[in-house]
């Protein structure tokens, strides 16, 4: 029974690893991920933004909306700001607990 379960699980993993694209390679186009998309730009252009050199402005991207070059920061602090607030709350609660347990009482 264990061997059958192992073989089935191994077959699933093998199938998934064959179906993956090359390791570490980002998708080069939106159509590779969403075949029915009606725009054909790369995924980076869609997320980071596309620079229109003649008009000197950004089009449809995170850089145009938040003004930050680092898109990871604009996701962490702007688009998903509530996540960061929750993480800060977790840190605050942990430190308050440690201070309550181990902090020496002052007179």
């Amino acid at each position: 029974m264990k061997k059958i379960a192992f073989i089935v699980f191994f077959a699933f993993l093998l199938f998934a690893s064959i179906e993956m694209r090359e390791f570490g390679k980002p998708p080069s186009s939106v159509k590779e991920v969403f075949p029915n998309a009606n725009y054909d730009v790369t995924m980076d252009d869609r997320i980071i933004g596309k620079y229109n050199a003649s008009a000197e402005k950004w089009e449809y991207g995170a850089v145009e909306e938040t003004g930050a070059n680092n898109v990871v920061t604009s996701v962490v602090f702007d688009y998903r700001g509530y996540d960061t607030l929750g993480e800060a709350t977790v840190l605050f609660t942990a430190i308050a607990g440690v201070m309550l347990l181990f902090g020496r009482e002052r007179k």
Binding site: T66, A68, T73, S74, F77
Partner: peptide, 10 residues
Amino acid sequence: NSGGVLPILN
């Protein structure tokens, strides 16, 4: 000096 409130939050 770009980024709006992101540097302050950082």
